[in-house]
Design a protein around this nucleic acid. Structure first.
Lengths: 212, 212
DNA sequence: GCCTCAATTATACACTTGCATAATTGCAGA
DNA sequence: TCTGCAATTATGCAAGTGTATAATTGAGGC
């Protein structure tokens, strides 16, 4: 008579893992790491808490998987910007910089996510490795774009400039995400393009938005 | 006969509050917000958990007080750098930039602290106000240093350059703190000085360390 | 239709958390 | 020395945490 047991559908392993990871990321973005409890994650994923332990060895395991997924998505997004960019080096660099300084990259939720993971990144070696790899990958991408420009600088100097450009981008991204009301729409983009241009000794035009 | 009740000393209110705040900040810096439990904070402050509620209305109240104290300390540190700087505008700016890009400002613990508070800053209006005030204060300080330079730019352009310079500083600070092994000693300072110089169109010499 | 087994749910447990409240005690002033 | 009060400790509690384990059930193969 007690037919009150919850109905469910069986899903493929990949879909379930992804749903759980997405739920965890959303919760951390919204309410910080503390909000991403096993029960909250399960509820958002439309599932029962016990199932998490069927797909992940522990909550930490899920957390690591979520961080890895987040970083992969960000890498993919960055690469996608270059796919649909004009062929000339200056336009490509400008597109890359501008994309990082407007929504959806500039976004309080994404920054909350980033900050939420920061602590674990500092302490868990595996997550530290993921972070280092992602950061250096982004910087190498940027350095590659700079190398395609006709600049009379050697490799060491190019590395330093790439670090500096990466710094401006990160810093402006951070400030725009943490304090959205402090900047007019498009303002960060313009400031970032000018600053990167100044560091590299050239002018970066504001790229027109690509219509996909 | 049961003399096993803990001995204690009465302290002034100010000292106890400060000790509790310091303990909370240390714990957050070391182990993230999750490590700063009421019990852990009390233990580090050499006190019993119940006392926290005697000096603070709730744990959130203590957290807010800790954030306020942290921001005040950082403001004080920044101002102190300028106290002992050479009088000429270029040197002052260089000292300000360089100080932000070396220890103890560049430091994994400090960044962990910053990241740990980020989430609450986003959601608690009072903490958001503190954050905005501190950030804008820092930027205004920087803009003031720039205004003292002989540059042919108007106020709007000066504001944009200040935002950009602030961005480089923040971004490099972040990267140096998150990935200390990726940079040689002094490298961040040099990169930051060059970048700020490029943005402003001048050369910033590396300031000699002031011996207090 | 039935069987089988993995996917899923249900339940329980030990532990931690923030908080409330009562019991002590250090210490300043008479 | 004694007294009174606020600073401090001790104890307990309800809620929430991650996890282990047993009981169900959806769905594909025969």
């Amino acid at each position: 008579m007690t037919g009150d047991r919850r109905k469910f559908r069986r899903e493929g392993e990949e879909r379930r893992r992804e749903a759980l990871i997405t739920a965890a990321l959303e919760l951390i973005a919204e309410g910080g790491p503390a909000a991403a409890t096993v029960r909250a994650i399960a509820e958002r994923a439309g599932v029962t808490p016990g199932l998490i332990r069927h797909y992940f060895q522990s909550k930490d395991d899920l957390t690591r998987a979520a961080y890895r997924a987040l970083m992969q998505r960000m890498n993919t997004d960055n690469a996608a910007v270059l796919e649909s960019a004009p062929p000339d080096p200056v336009s490509r660099l400008a597109a890359f910089v501008a994309a990082a300084l407007r929504p959806p990259v500039v976004d309080p939720g994404r920054m909350g996510l980033w900050a939420g993971f920061m602590h674990q990144v500092r302490k868990t070696p595996e997550m530290a490795a993921i972070h280092a790899e992602t950061y250096l990958g982004y910087r190498d991408l940027l350095e590659g774009l700079i190398a395609a420009l006709p600049l009379p600088i050697d490799a060491a100097e190019r590395r330093r400039r790439a670090i500096a450009c990466n710094g401006v981008i990160d810093g402006l991204w951070l400030e725009g995400s943490a304090l959205p009301a402090a900047f007019a729409p498009g303002e960060l983009e313009r400031i970032g393009l000018d600053a990167v241009g100044a560091i590299l000794g050239l002018r970066l035009p504001s790229p027109q938005l690509s219509e996909t």
